[in-house]
Amino acid sequence: MKKIIAIGLIVSLVLAILLSPFASSSPDGLEKVGEDKGFIEKAHSLLTGLLPDYLFPGVSNEKIATAIAGGLGVLIVFGITYLLMLMIRKKDKSKQI
């Protein structure tokens, strides 16, 4: 199990840190439909988020800013899911696989 977790985390970090800076920046399916059909200008953000647009603030190189934001995101999502599932499981300690 430890090996699977290590491999899974490494693969996820490699995708987020090394590949995500080179992802396509073209509009996605919904944005493209919004542009073509003339409702894209309705889009706005009520929250700015800590790392808007997957860019770590204060880093001028956009590829590096994306890589840091992606790596942080992977660790945060892993941590939050792990803790929430642990809490859901701990509600009944008698359960075993």
Binding site: M1, I4, I5, L9, S12, A16, S20, S24, Y54, L75
Partner: peptide, 24 residues
């Protein structure tokens, strides 16, 4: 949920988050 699910669901979330960043 079993013992094995907890870390595997963490990995699954992390992988999906990372893969969702990769627009093709």
């Amino acid at each position: 949920i079993g013992e094995k699910h907890v870390p595997l669901m963490g990995i699954m979330s992390a992988f999906i988050f990372a893969a969702q960043m990769l627009n093709f």
